[in-house]
Amino acid sequence: MSTTAAPEKGTPRLSENGRRRQPPPAGTAPSAARGSRAMAWLFLAPTIVGMGVFTLVPIVASILLAFFRWDILSAPQFAGLANFTEITSDPTVRVAFGNTIGFVVVAVVLQLGVALGLAVLVQERLPNWLRVFFRSAFFFPLILSAASVSIFMKYLFNEQFGVVNWLLGTVGVPAVPWLTTPVGSACVVVLVYVWQNFGFSFLLFLGALSSIPQETYEAASIDGATGWRKHRHVTLPLISPTTLVASVMAIINALQVFDQPYVLTRGGPGDSTRTAVMVIFETAFQRLEFGKASAIGVVLMLLIMAVTALQFRLSKRFVFYQ
């Protein structure tokens, strides 16, 4: 190898027009550039050690802890599957998982629908400055903290002095008890969450739409497809890979919802807006049942992994790749 590399080094590289760069041969100089193995581990150390300590060990510990009872004060006691049987019969946990799944379905459908609709509107013929303005506007909520957003939204949705009810009042709608009724609270959590997050799916859809060649639409319109049918038969199939990625990312994020319900409703009224992560938080850090909290965490992790696995399955069956 080193003998073939030697003459090559003498010839000026730049003059080798059109020839692909060759993989670095294992000669003396390149091997110096690629370093010794020990050197590589020095480069990797901060990330690998950090991940080992703060991610991998905690994952294993979390799974193990799910089979123990532990209140941090006394020694952990092996409990077998007790934590899992307890959480399946615990009404609060069941309600919280039900709420979370319901939330995911409604929020994700709304988020993707709004995002796709707006992306189509922005992508079609529009003066460029308007396109830039709308793109920035829809992106803007993503840079805010969910806690801050929930703080001001809580005021906006206040029953007596909130702006939302004031606006509804100007068109004759009586005051809606947003944050004091189960249905109202659930609506607010969904709306606030979607308000902040639709911009992300919007950006993904916008990227996908802008990569559809204009010729495709021209061909479709020659075949007589206009308006809705153009989108139904051309746009939707062509962006299906993005739709899948955007839905999976949205589902995984929505499954972990915490900040909005915590700040807006603290899970209430009753348990009506309590989510899975809120229950993990309360079980562990308010009731000190760390084993049970880990068991809930493991169930949530399995849910997330199932969604990811489903993504791979679906992408083979339904997504149209060019």
């Binding site: 991610t55 510990a61 979390s62």
Partner: peptide, 13 residues
């Protein structure tokens, strides 16, 4: 792996 799942052991660590 979401942070919510590992938070209990991270807290212990």
């Amino acid at each position: 792996v979401p942070v919510q799942v590992t938070i209990v052991p991270v807290f212990m660590l």
